[in-house]
Write a protein that binds this DNA or RNA. Structure first.
Length: 806
DNA sequence: AGCACGCCGACT
DNA sequence: GTCGGCGTGCTC
């Protein structure tokens, strides 16, 4: 028997299956989808078995070393999905497989140096022999870490045979075990032994006594942890186990990230609108029919309840469901809603979990211990075998697009899997992506509309403030008069305010007023942002930091001034203008630590603050009854980005943020500050008019030949030398022009808005096309040709259907 | 990704 | 003459 194995090196030259002989004892065990360790070249690597066969065109086959799994980690469906994913996103097949699995299933490679001939080593390299001391082997990394100059003597010793190198492939997947203690003899016997124990064995007697006097001693098996918590001695228990009076078992345990008890909830009574939306979804499930529904519902229209009740139906049909939620709205609030309804049937997957916790949640899915998974983007690969429904909440969210290889969009994966399983997909959003809404209009998707909020609360009233007018009246503050007054008013009424600004840091750039020099990052083509807390200038692209100087590096004048406003500056302004206000600031800088995101939100929920000030991350999923005012400080910060989606993003963001106000009994109010108050994205968001926005934006997209009228491909090249990228970009553009049809438009090469990142110069080519059969073959060929380069050479990335043109 | 093979500059 | 730089090519 022969196995086809994909080696876990996501590079082009090894992106193909390698044949290996399967040793006799493995023949009944090995299945496609399992991981194996194999000899590869002169090292050992982990690989994925994709197929089994009887013959190979290669004669000198090596054998598989070991099987790493009992159960295939990739199901037949996922193996196939991975191939499709690699093809359609132009990446290595293993890269696709790795993206579908939890990180712990990746191998941990360790190089080990072994002493073969201690005497010779001591004679020829006493310094090396000293390092090894009495140990027979050392980790390569440890050995080299001490002294790089050792390399020469190590090489010499290797050649002389006094040292040898071995490759260790360690499986990182470890289940958590707990020690469980139980009685291994009868109570009578324990009593007897007890009486025979010497009085000096006080701790042992104590422990034994504890077990004897349990009426349920036969079925009593507490964890070691629990017993030591009771004050019993661990050593005494071990001694008793040695005497075979007690036994200790290592029991595999799922880590439980959600320890607190969650109250069970019952299905809510649906409004007519909700019931009308739910019915076709259930119908489609019952007919085992693949259909995509676009659930377009205003914020607060009760989409989640529709999700919950359709999942209920999935469970009744003994099927499984995947629910995708954007990472930032995967809050405890959200988890509680699903766990409350479905309890232990739910696994949760998000970035806040440790690697071990993620692995456990994944195993619950793989071993069919749960039927529902709620998770961020990668949960779309949940290894369910009988999917009945896939839900993507906030389907317009750009975080569903993975930004590194494989550059997939979870929505595309969802539709592909749902076709395999003949089940429906539900896309939900208050502000659908133009792509999805256009498909709904063309009846490719089925549109479900929810126009009313469940509790019949009116949508918040929205005021647009013209910041140009404020400027004219001499107000240079980040707050308009109107907004400031409203914040003060809420403070007095003990109500809460949410303020949104899409820029972190203090000032977005530092400029010399005398010569106009803007301080830029030495490694990137971008201005540095001033962070006041540490009094540093930081690059938001590469993380570079430098001290703030008082004088201009170019002209030496002391006219350096801060421009632009970030969240830190707003925070400072607030404490100056309204010193009594308690402010919580939420941005990448204040939520970097694990759990701080949740902690800040909880504090705000407990009304320990009056104002929540934040970036993107506060735009979604927040639901606090006391919030009656939402302020969007600069609604056009995104609008002027050179991106065809700028208006769409602005519209979505403003709508989402506005939706945070007045979700409960108290009426909500929204103030939008903008330098372009007449822009349709701002106006339509203020009027809660999606269709009007859609129509205007579609007209512009048609004019610019942008999605959803055309598909895009973005090819981005980087290299430390500008001339090298330019040349490669030129050649790629030529290849595209030569091989693609006339109906496709090829743009570039051009230098993108940020011309250099992390000391690498960038160039881009773009293709717009409607139907282009030659596209994927050409892109694969480009990848093959240009991506063979080494570490510092040319890097090529291909992004099909990019979400941003950065 | 590693690692060897292979062809040109500064050293014992 | 050799050590060693990193450009190219292969791993079932």
């Amino acid at each position: 028997m022969i196995a086809e194995v994909y080696i876990d090196i996501p590079a082009n030259p090894v992106n193909k299956p390698f044949d290996y002989r399967v040793p006799e004892p493995y023949r009944d065990l090995l299945e496609p989808g399992m991981r194996v360790t194999v000899p590869f070249g002169r090292t050992r690597r982990l690989g994925f078995v994709t197929a089994l066969k009887e013959s190979s065109e290669f004669t000198r086959l090596k054998s598989i070393d070991a099987i790493e799994d009992h159960l295939p980690v990739l199901t037949t469906e996922l193996l196939e999905l991975g191939r499709w994913l690699a093809d359609t996103t132009v990446c290595a097949t293993v890269a696709a497989y790795q993206a579908m699995l939890p990180a712990v299933l990746k191998a941990d490679y360790k190089k080990v140096v072994k002493v073969e001939d201690p005497k010779q080593l001591k004679k020829q390299h006493p310094n090396l022999a000293g390092l090894f001391e009495s140990k027979g082997q050392l980790l390569w990394a440890e050995l080299v870490k001490n002294d790089v100059n050792l390399l020469t003597s190590i090489n010499h010793a290797l050649r002389k045979g006094s040292l040898s190198i071995h490759q260790l492939v360690r499986n990182q997947a470890t289940a958590k075990h707990v020690a469980v203690v139980s009685a291994s003899v009868s109570a009578e016997r324990m009593k007897l032994e007890y009486s025979q124990l010497s009085d000096r064995a006080k701790r042992q007697k104590e422990a034994l006594y504890y077990f004897i006097h349990r009426s349920d001693s036969a079925t009593f098996h507490p964890t070691m942890q629990a017993l030591t918590n009771e004050g019993l001695s661990r050593d005494a228990i071990l001694k008793l186990a040695e005497k075979e009076l007690l036994r200790i078992d290592q029991v595999e345990q799922f880590r439980n990230p959600y320890k607190r008890a969650i109250e069970h909830t019952e299905p809510l009574k649906l409004t007519d609108e909700q019931a009308n939306a739910l019915a076709p979804i259930l119908q489609s499930m019952d007919k085992n029919e693949h259909r995509v529904f676009l659930c377009h519902g205003v914020t607060g229209s009760g989409k989640t309840e529709i999700y919950l009740q359709s999942i209920q139906h999935v469970l009744e049909r003994k099927q499984q469901a995947i629910v995708l939620v954007p990472e930032i709205s995967l809050t405890p609030q959200m988890v509680v809603r699903f766990k409350g309804r479905f309890g232990d049937h739910v696994a949760v997957m998000h970035s806040g979990l440790s690697r071990g916790e993620k692995y456990d949640e994944w195993r619950k899915i793989r071993e069919e211990k749960v039927q529902v998974v709620v998770g961020a983007r990668s949960a779309i690969f949940a290894p369910f075998n009988n999917l009945g429904l896939i839900i993507i909440d906030e389907e317009h969210e750009s975080s569903y697009k993975q930004e590194d290889m494989p550059r997939y969009h979870a929505r595309d994966i969802a539709i592909h899997r749902a076709q395999d399983h003949q089940c429906p997909v539900v896309l939900g959003s208050a502000t659908p992506s133009l792509e999805s809404f256009a498909r709904a209009r063309k009846q490719v998707y089925t549109l479900l509309s929810l126009k009313q909020r469940v509790n019949h609360r009116p949508l918040p009233s929205v005021h647009i403030v013209d910041l140009r007018e404020e400027m004219r009246q001499g107000n240079h503050s980040v707050f308009s008069k109107e907004l400031l007054e409203k914040i003060k008013d809420r403070l007095q009424k003990k109500e809460q305010t949410v303020l949104f600004l899409n820029r972190r840091g203090y000032a977005t750039f530092v400029m010399c007023r005398s010569c106009g020099t803007v301080v830029e990052c030495p490694h990137c083509d971008i201005s540095l942002t001033y962070h006041r807390a540490q009094h540093l200038l930081k690059c938001h692209y590469c993380g570079y930091e430098q001290a703030v100087s008082d004088t201009c590096p170019t002209c030496g004048s002391d006219a350096m001034r801060f421009f632009g406003t970030g969240t830190q500056k707003v925070e400072a302004e607030l404490s100056r203008l309204i010193p009594e206000a308690r402010v919580i600031r939420m941005d990448v800088d204040t939520t970097r630590k694990k759990g701080s995101h949740e902690r800040l939100l909880r504090q705000f929920g407990e009304e320990k603050a009056d104002i929540l000030l934040g970036t993107q991350m506060i735009a979604k999923g927040l639901d606090f009854p006391k919030v009656t005012l939402v302020g969007v400080l600069a609604a056009d910060s995104l609008l002027h980005l050179a991106d065809f989606r700028a208006s769409e993003k602005t519209f979505q963001l403003v709508t989402q943020v506005a939706g945070r106000a007045g979700r409960h009994d108290l009426p909500g109010e929204v103030v939008i500050q903008s330098y372009s108050p007449d822009h349709y994205a701002v106006l339509d968001a203020a009027r809660h008019d999606y269709e009007s926005f859609y129509n205007q934006e579609m007209a512009l997209r048609r004019l610019g030949s942008y999605p959803p009228f055309y598909y895009l491909v973005l090819i981005c090249l980087t290299h430390p030398e500008p001339a090298k990228v330019a040349e490669a970009a030129e050649r790629i553009a030529l290849i595209l022009k030569k091989h693609l049809s006339d109906s496709s438009q090829i743009y570039g090469p051009v230098v993108p808005a940020v011309a250099k990142i992390k000391d690498r110069y960038r160039y881009q080519c773009m293709v717009k096309y409607k139907r282009e059969p030659a596209l994927l073959p050409v892109l694969h060929r480009i990848m093959q040709h240009f991506q063979e380069g080494g570490k510092n050479g040319l890097q090529v990335s291909i992004d099909l259907n990019p979400v941003a043109l950065m």
